Computed example of a mutant assay.
Amino acid sequence: MRVKDFHYDLPEELIAQTPPAVRGTSRMLVFDRATGSYRDDHFRNLPDILKAGDLLILNDSRVIPARLYATRARGRHTQQNSPDPSGRIEVLLTQHIGAGDWSALVRPSRKVQPGERLLFQRANGTAADAPLLEAEVLSSDDFGERTLRFEHVEDFQAILETIGHMPLPPYIHREDSIEDRERYQTVFSHEPGSAAAPTAGLHFTPEILAQLRQSGIQTETITLHVGLGTFQPVRAKQVEDIHLHTEQFTLPVATAEAINTAMKEGRRIIAAGTTTTRTLEHCAQQAAGKPLQPHSGETGIFISPGYEFKVVSGLLTNFHLPESTLLMLVSAFAGGERGREAVLAAYAHAVRQKYRFFSYGDCMLLL
């Protein structure tokens, strides 16, 4: 299939720039996979739409303030710490590799080559202030990707909270705000490590989660730290040429047991988000027909039409960018080539009805 087969037209004014005034008040398009039909609804009705016995899986990864701003140290391949006034360098941390090493996207990338040292200071700091973080560029890849090695500090996460910015997607045309610290985060987030929010989870409130449980719907969690594998742009022309970066995940003991029991009993397993879907389907592939085993690892699974789902039987997801790998996953879940056409028809309906799109937008439930 061609990547452009997943194109649709979206007026820019439908791209949500802010979250809804009240969490949980989003609209929801309910899609019937058996018929390809759809209807308008609201997310607050999810506890009434799902059935007692359903198992809902959530991604509890927590977004870190992964967007940082740096200056280059004067003198390449040196330990000299005076900042170079030649311009600000934007750094988006995308994956913790281990110890002080991180994968990152850097802009402008042409200025930042292996051997360079980057200095990170407070937003209102001066050139005379000691940097709070220092990193050496170890390697470079295509499209602005770099590997950074940060010098050891006592509490790296605390410094990120001090100088970092919430990594809002590029289609949100504003600076991050104090409000984003809460709203670009799920209410059940627990494990820090994501460079973007698992956005299907943004709709949930404590009250809706309580209603789900009262309705007999079981909830469990996985962790997938969102990185380049989820939001990297597609540069291939053919779907079969797409390869995703790996992302780190954990399948906990309780979740593996709940999934195995639900599958044995023939109950539905609903994935909240494409990140949850990719994690569950990767684990099912690794299990090769046997019960799922709790473990941690990395996945670069790419799901497109033709894929046969092994675990997930329902999907809650936001509306995705044209020609994106996430739209391909949704099309695959809706039923391959027929599903692609039905999903694009549903998206056209959402455009006509002025749904809000992407991270802070409305959602879609496929059952």
Rank of each mutant, 00 (worst) to 15 (best):
R174C: 02
Y171I: 01
D142M: 12
L367F: 14
T277V: 12
G266F: 13
Y69F: 15
H203V: 01
K51I: 03
T261H: 13
P252K: 03
R183S: 14
Y69T: 14
Q293I: 14
I15T: 10
R122V: 06
L14V: 09
S86I: 09
E175F: 08
C283I: 06
A334P: 02
L366E: 07
Q218S: 13
K264W: 00
H77P: 00
V137H: 10
L292Q: 07
R117A: 02
A346C: 02
L50M: 15
P305T: 04
D84A: 13
F6L: 05
R110M: 00
L316F: 00
E154K: 15
P233F: 09
T147A: 09
N318I: 10
R267V: 06
Y355W: 05
H320S: 05
T230F: 00
P11A: 11
G193T: 09
F358N: 02
Q248L: 11
E13K: 10
R149M: 09
S37V: 06
T223D: 06
D32F: 10
S331P: 06
R2S: 15
R67H: 08
G289H: 11
L315H: 10
G24C: 09
F302Y: 13
I259H: 03
L168I: 14
S139F: 12
A236K: 11
D141N: 13
R23Y: 08
A52H: 07
P20E: 12
R352Q: 14
T94P: 03
V239L: 03
A70I: 08
G339W: 12
R2V: 05
P131D: 04
K290N: 15
A334N: 04
L292Y: 01
A350E: 02
I178K: 14
K310C: 06
Q17P: 04
